[in-house]
Computed example of a mutant assay.
Amino acid sequence: MKDVMGEWYLLLRSTPSVEPCPLRDAFQIPITSGYYSQAAGAMAGLCFAALVLLLGVKEKDARAPRQNPDALATLFATLFSLIFSMIQYSVLAGTRAADGRTAGGELVAGLTFTLAISMLFHALGLLLEMQPECASIAELARWVSVVIIPVCGLLFLVMGSQDSELIRFGSSGQEPLVACPESSTVQAVGLVLVGVMAICLIMVKATNWRTAWAHRHRSLVPVVTLVLTVVSLFCFGFLSMHPSDFVAPRWALVAFLATAWLLLTAIAVFVQLGSKKPVVPSRGIAAETAIGTDERSSGEDDSLHKVLMERGWVIILMSPKRSRVFKPGRDRR
């Protein structure tokens, strides 16, 4: 009797009460971090070149719009963030195998990289809004910096949080790891945050909310980016000091995703509130602006310009003594 009971007990112990957890291939964090480091370094080089070129531009026309200081400050903050993002990814690329520290560092470096790319398109929008003829491109750049980059960046962080869950149920980052069904809690919360962010930012951008206070203080955006970059560097160093068997708890992952959601959403909303209303010049306004109060060699030239404008011709002033005259659909000199 005891033998029969023992056999039934062993059978119950060996029969799983739930379905076995599916196997998933581990994400190669060190290898991928090397590619991200190269991409961040290339973008940092382009950003540095653009910053130097803009600082070296000399306006020949005294009436031309001066350089946008907010755009220069945003480019500097972008360069700063890209450099430190490159350093963080380089450190991750130097690890032998994926562990809890590299999985946590991947999230911190991903947030820095997302901020840098968002500021890059924000700086592009600030530069384009100085040119009325580029108003449509500036609006497109603002859609990218306000909606697309923050949403995709948060989704990127949610996908990165899966690595911590994989490592939590495995012993090595180089082997297939077990991801149990209960490990999808963090990803579920993250996807909800992504959906809420997408709805909020699309509503803010579609309604074109703008305030004068945010426009006057939009220089705070690059300052906040610099501060967040420095904070992320300290967090990255703090994670690096943990032992190799450290894995961030689930509540810490959820708190990080919520904090990233709050920061990215707040920056995107402030960028939209501080944006300048696009001005698309019409044909008559463009011609009048081109002629404006420019010096004329004689009153006869003024009369000729007036007649041409009344007949639908467009005049582009190329120099005080030389103008280009053309009509839509035809090109004459």
Rank of each mutant, 00 (worst) to 15 (best):
M1W: 04
M1H: 05
K2L: 10
D3S: 12
G6P: 08
Y9S: 15
Y9N: 15
R13D: 15
P16T: 13
P16L: 15
P16V: 05
E19M: 14
P20W: 09
A26N: 15
F27P: 00
Q28D: 13
P30Y: 12
T32R: 08
T32F: 03
G34P: 08
Y35H: 10
A40F: 05
G41N: 09
A44L: 00
G45R: 06
G45I: 03
G45N: 08
F48Q: 14
F48G: 09
A50Q: 13
V52M: 14
L55V: 10
K58C: 10
D61A: 03
A62Q: 05
F76C: 01
F80N: 09
F80H: 09
L82A: 02
S85M: 11
M86D: 07
Q88S: 06
S90I: 05
L92P: 00
T95G: 09
A97K: 04
G100I: 07
R101A: 02
A103K: 03
G104C: 05
E106M: 13
E106K: 05
L107H: 04
L111H: 10
A116I: 01
A116L: 06
I117K: 09
L120P: 01
Q131V: 10
Q131L: 12
Q131Y: 15
Q131E: 13
E133Y: 03
C134E: 11
R142N: 00
W143R: 06
V144N: 00
S145K: 02
S145P: 04
I149S: 03
I149D: 00
I149C: 02
P150V: 07
P150N: 11
L154D: 06
L154W: 04
G160K: 12
G160D: 06
D163N: 13
L166H: 08
R168G: 02
F169R: 13
G170C: 01
S172V: 07
E175C: 10
E175I: 13
P176W: 07
L177Y: 01
P181I: 02
E182W: 14
T185V: 14
T185Q: 11
V186H: 00
V189M: 08
V189S: 01
L193P: 11
L193E: 14
V194L: 07
C200V: 09
V204R: 06
T207D: 08
N208Y: 00
A212Y: 07
A214K: 01
H215P: 00
H217F: 02
L220C: 08
V221C: 03
L228R: 11
L228V: 13
L228F: 13
V231P: 04
F236G: 09
G237W: 00
L239N: 05
F246T: 11
F246V: 07
A252P: 01
A255K: 04
T259Q: 08
L263K: 00
T265G: 12
I267F: 04
F270V: 02
V271A: 04
S275M: 03
K277M: 11
V279G: 05
S282N: 12
A286V: 10
A287Q: 09
A290K: 05
I291L: 07
T293Q: 15
D294L: 05
E295D: 11
R296Q: 00
V307M: 13
V307A: 14
V307E: 15
I316S: 12
K321N: 07
P328E: 05
G329F: 06
D331A: 10
